[in-house]
Design a protein around this nucleic acid. Structure first.
Lengths: 140, 140
DNA sequence: TGACAATCATACAATTAGTACAATTCTGAG
DNA sequence: CTCAGAATTGTACTAATTGTATGATTGTCA
């Protein structure tokens, strides 16, 4: 049993602070502290759970909250990864630029495929509307 | 032994979009965009898999879906080819599917960055309007 | 003791990888 | 020229790895 220090977390089981909160906090700290860099894959829920001697659902819960907080990205069947997160002030300044770049990228591709402005904005409208329901990947 | 970019695909392993979907979407785009012409042989599942550093079954899955969609023709023992002439209805469907995929890609990214629906569609509107003028300065 | 949050157990779903196989093409001995 | 066998290509099925969903259990505290 080689104890590989996948991710070094110090849990206090008697602190009264829920485990999943402790996990969440410490990962957040390590991310903002630069210990965990963008695109780094975190241990799987099972691996981390084994290392911490807790149920993997507890880890999953922490991961889910971190995902909702935009710190990490969890993907079924693939794994969990740190998300690039720009500093707060820079983020605000860059936000609209980022969205603009995204929009222009979309428009550029669509234009290249000879779609009209009407088609482009119509599809955008439709997909925005049906986003929640059709979260499933577009398979068909 | 420079790895020739047989088929230039850009995979994002952390986007949340499955690899096989990304492969499928991008090939669809290149076909409907005219980058990949009829009768062109695509890389073999193994070659493309090696280039993308994924399992060849992942590529095979994308190929199979594209085959079922009538975009390509996969032939055991021979290879994979762009369909000579996509049936009109397939082409039409393909075009709209492609646009849909593009739109969802944009929305997905924007959502991930916590932009609201309003912001997303507003930016789209604005960029569509200013597309022509700003194109001169943004030629690739 | 009862309510509620935290944790755990179990079953499930999605994605990718592994292995064996079948169809086709290529190659070279005869 | 022919044909056996290797090489190449896609296919099918299965296994492994990952996160998800849901309900049961446990523990704490008013």
């Amino acid at each position: 049993m080689n104890d590989k220090p996948i991710l070094s977390l110090r849990l206090d089981f008697h602190s009264g602070l829920p485990i999943y909160i402790q996990i969440m906090n410490q990962i957040e700290q390590q991310v903002s502290g630069g210990v965990l860099k963008a695109d780094t894959q975190l241990p799987t829920v099972r691996a981390l759970a084994a290392e911490l001697r807790v149920n993997f659902n507890t880890v999953a819960r922490a991961y889910r909250l971190l995902d909702e907080a935009g710190v990490i990205s969890t993907q079924q069947g693939r794994g969990t990864y740190i998300i690039e997160k720009p500093p707060p002030e820079v983020e605000k300044k860059l936000r609209s630029q980022t969205l603009e770049a995204l929009a222009r990228q979309y428009i550029g591709e669509a234009k290249r495929l000879k779609f009209s402005d009407a088609e482009i904005s119509q599809m955008m409208k439709a997909q925005l509307k049906s986003w929640e329901e059709t979260q499933e990947t577009n398979l068909e």
